[in-house]
Computed example of a mutant assay.
Amino acid sequence: MITRVDVLNYLIKVNDVKNYLEIGVNRGKCFFNIKGAKQRIAVDPYFNFSFIKKIRYLVKNPHNFKNKYFEMTSDRFFDSHHKFLKNNPINLTFIDGLHTFSQSLKDTLNSLKYLSDQGIIILHDCNPQDKIAAFPASNIEDARIKFSSHKSWKNIWNGDVWKTIVFLRKNHPELTVSVLDTDHGLGVVKKIPTQEVLPTVFDSISNEDIPQLEYSFLASHRKELLNLVPIEIFLGKE
């Protein structure tokens, strides 16, 4: 499977990305495998990786001493670092923080303020494959408490990030929004006016409806809602 790391490194290479921002770093599984980008910016309320791991990474990648680490919520990061962000326009943002509609939308809209004109935002977890993975919990701990004993629980919680894709497509024609059909769904947001006419399914959805949309609605209208794109087409392999 082509993973988010593969897609991010591909975008960094073909777009000559200078500044990379990652929201929701956790153990650094993605962040420490990013190649290229002169400056990488990590944001998470709690970095769940050791100081030793960070040092080992820098020893192997000495050119990355410009990396910036902000151990705080994304809301606080955007509220407190206007000057830094204006002086360092982001070329590529990866959003993998709290997997809720409200927070993923907020992170996306905040990222857009500091995204370069040719920049791209990638959102993880936009294409959940079952009702449990898509359950709108407050966080993964709540999802585990609710479903850990359920026979269908796979320890996968995508939450309702997919609703952010629906909201953006419905309300922001100045953006082009799609989802790559790989690695739990990778949302792609670009500052390019969309050329598409929205599918008729959007006619039945108001902004007030979006937070209450259920997984069954996504399952019935997946391609239309998400603008689902095969990963091979995105990578130019088909």
Rank of each mutant, 00 (worst) to 15 (best):
K131T: 12
N207L: 06
T176I: 06
D209C: 08
N9I: 04
F94A: 02
I120Y: 02
V201W: 13
I156C: 10
I23V: 02
N9V: 04
I12S: 02
R4E: 05
A134Y: 02
P193C: 07
F32C: 02
R27S: 14
S220E: 13
W157R: 04
V197N: 14
L213F: 08
G187I: 02
Y20R: 06
G119L: 05
E208G: 10
L186N: 10
R4V: 11
W162G: 01
D44P: 04
H172V: 06
I156S: 15
Q39A: 01
F47K: 01
Y10V: 09
N9Q: 04
I132N: 05
L168Y: 01
F202K: 14
S138Y: 09
T200N: 15
C30L: 12
S50L: 08
H63N: 15
Q39P: 01
T194D: 09
W157Y: 03
I90K: 07
N48K: 13
F70R: 03
R27H: 13
N91M: 05
L168E: 08
D16Q: 15
F94W: 01
A133P: 00
E71G: 00
G187W: 02
E208M: 11
V166C: 00
Q39T: 07
K35A: 02
D183F: 09
S74M: 04
E224C: 07
V43C: 01
F70Q: 02
K154E: 15
L115W: 02
G159N: 07
E71M: 00
K190S: 10
I120Q: 05
G28V: 00
V189L: 05
E22Q: 08
L109M: 11
K35G: 06
D142H: 15
S216G: 10
I205A: 07
F94M: 03
Q212E: 11
V177H: 05
K68S: 06
Q103H: 15
S220F: 11
L85P: 07
I156L: 14
R40V: 02
I192S: 10
L175I: 06
K146C: 03
F32R: 02
I192N: 12
K13L: 11
E141D: 14
F217L: 08
I210Y: 01
G28S: 01
F47N: 03
G24S: 03
F94H: 01
V201E: 11
Y69A: 00
F167K: 10
S104H: 07
D160M: 10
A143C: 05
I210E: 04
D16A: 15
A219H: 07
D183P: 06
F47G: 10
N26V: 01
G24P: 07
R76L: 13
P136L: 00
K223F: 14
K237C: 10
P230C: 10
L218M: 06
I90T: 06
F147P: 03
R144V: 08
F94E: 04
N26T: 03
T93V: 15
Q39M: 08
S206H: 05
F167N: 11
Y10D: 11
F135N: 04
